[in-house]
C-alpha cells in the first residue's frame, strides 16, 4: 500500500503565447492561460494506477502562487486523495535548487512517503533538474525518465528511456521517479471526480511553516537568474531545394544535418 506524493506544477498553456515579465525576467503568469502541466497529468495517472492496483494514498504537492489551486483541483478531480500547496510571495523567482529544497521540506510534512512521482521536465522552465535534486536532498534513489514503473513490495523497477536508449533500473523504496511522455495516457476527470475534488483536503503552507527562512528563497538569493530575454524570432522562410536529379540526396543530406535521420 504505497504512500505516494505526486509533484504537480501549474504552467502557462503551451497553446498560448508565453512570455517573461519585463521587470525581472521571471515568468509572466498573467499573460497566458494557466493549466496543469501535461507531464504532471501523466505523473498523477501513474500514481492512480499504482493506487488502484495496490491501494495506498496519493497526495499531490504543488509549489506555486494561489492560482495554482486550479491545477491542484484538476489532479484531485482525476482521483488524488489530498493536496499540499506551498504558496508564499517570497518564492517568486526561485531557482531549481531553492524550489527543490522547498519541495523536500514539504514532502517531509507527509507521513511515511514511499514514492515521489514527478514529470521529467516542466514545459515552462524545462530545466528537468528538480527530480534529481530532490532525490539528492531527500537521500532517496532517483529513477528518472521512466516509461514503465513496476512496484513489487519495497522494490521499484523502472524502464528508463532517453535518447541513448532504454535502461532497466531497480531500487528500494522510498524513491523518486520522474516519468516521460510515454508512461501512460492520463484519464479525464469524471463528473463525480470533479464534484468530489472540492471536498478533498488541501493543506496550504508558507515557507515559514516548512521551517525555511524567507531569505533563503526567491529571486534575490537564487543560484540562477535570467539576465536577458528576447522574443522568439519570427519563423524564417524554409530552405528550397531545386531538384536537378539529385533532389532526394539533397533532402537526405539536409535531414542528416538536422540529425533527423
Amino acid at each position: 500500500m504505497p504512500n505516494i506524493v505526486v509533484l504537480v506544477k501549474q504552467v502557462p498553456d503551451t497553446y498560448s503565447e508565453r512570455r517573461l515579465s519585463d521587470s525581472d525576467h521571471t515568468l509572466d503568469r498573467d499573460s497566458a492561460d494557466a493549466v496543469l502541466d501535461e507531464i504532471n497529468e501523466r505523473a498523477v495517472e501513474e500514481a492512480l494506477l499504482i493506487k488502484e492496483a495496490q491501494g495506498g494514498e496519493v497526495t499531490v504537492l504543488s509549489v506555486g502562487p494561489d492560482r495554482a489551486t486550479e491545477a491542484i483541483r484538476k489532479a484531485l478531480s482525476m482521483g488524488a486523495d489530498k493536496a499540499v500547496h506551498v504558496s508564499d510571495p517570497a518564492l517568486h523567482g526561485s531557482c531549481v535548487i531553492q524550489t527543490s529544497k522547498v519541495i523536500a521540506a514539504a514532502v517531509g510534512k507527509v507521513d511515511g512517503v514511499d514514492l515521489v512521482i514527478a514529470g521529467n521536465e516542466a514545459t515552462d522552465g524545462r530545466s528537468g533538474a528538480v527530480p534529481a535534486i530532490l532525490a539528492e536532498l531527500l537521500g532517496y534513489p532517483q529513477l528518472t525518465h521512466a516509461r514503465k514503473v513496476v512496484i513489487e513490495g519495497t522494490t521499484i523497477k523502472v524502464t528508463r528511456e532517453t535518447d541513448e536508449g532504454l535502461t532497466h533500473l531497480e531500487a528500494s523504496l522510498p524513491a523518486v521517479v520522474s516519468v516521460g511522455e510515454k508512461i501512460n495516457e492520463p484519464r479525464y476527470p469524471s463528473f463525480k471526480g470533479i464534484m468530489a475534488a472540492k471536498k478533498k483536503p488541501v493543506e496550504t503552507l508558507t515557507v515559514a511553516d516548512l521551517g525555511i527562512d524567507a531569505g533563503e528563497v526567491g529571486l534575490a538569493s537564487a543560484t540562477s537568474t535570467v539576465v536577458e530575454a528576447a522574443p522568439k524570432p519570427p519563423r524564417a522562410a524554409g530552405q528550397k531545394v531545386e531538384d536537378e536529379g539529385d533532389g532526394g540526396a539533397k533532402i537526405a543530406e539536409y535531414l542528416v544535418g538536422q540529425k533527423l535521420i
Binding site: 484538476k74 478531480s77 479525464y188 470533479i194 464534484m195 475534488a197 472540492k198
Partner: peptide
C-alpha cells in the same frame, strides 16, 4: 461554479 467550469474544461478536452 468552480465545478461547472472544471466540467466544461474536462469535456472540452475530451471533445
Amino acid at each position: 461554479s468552480e465545478e461547472r467550469q472544471a466540467l466544461r474544461k474536462a469535456v472540452a478536452e475530451l471533445g
